[in-house]
Amino acid sequence: MITLDLNSVLNSQYRENRGYKKLLSWHFLLRSLIPISWPLKKANRKLATILTTLKETHAYLIEMTPELKGTDLHTEIRSAEKLLEYLYEQQGVLEDHMSQSRFRALQPSLDITSEMIHVLHSISRVLRKNTLKQPLTKRSEEAILAVNRSKKTMNKLYGR
């Protein structure tokens, strides 16, 4: 049995979005007044720590795979999804600023965020692969549609 609160991986500063907002505001407001390389380095160190924790979590889950199999991991899956959505949003905001040369100093923050997203996708994959599967009660309309589309295409191919 594992318990994994992925949202707690992000410290409160980032969870409440203050961390990422700070990264941008240093550039908007403070760049001309104070040297920003020190607070940027500090922020990136924090992000790198979060990335390390995510990598360790992934390694732990891989190691625990035999024990995970068939466990209900849906809470953890939802937690990973929520965190992914949040990180994609922050990555997008950083990317939007990259077209302006004065924001280029944020590139390391963007790189770390992108890697965090990649690791989190891997975590989500392990969780979904091993979680207890819910029994299917009814075949979906979409499944019927997908099969019929392929069937129609194959018939047309043979009829050529």
Binding site: I77, Y88, Q91, Q134
Partner: peptide, 21 residues
């Protein structure tokens, strides 16, 4: 591969997508 917004069919074989993707 098919995209849907149906909450009923969201399961372990779903890959959630968002605007930023």
């Amino acid at each position: 591969v098919m995209i849907t917004s149906s909450a009923v069919t969201k399961d372990d074989l779903s890959f959630p997508i968002n605007d930023r993707m």
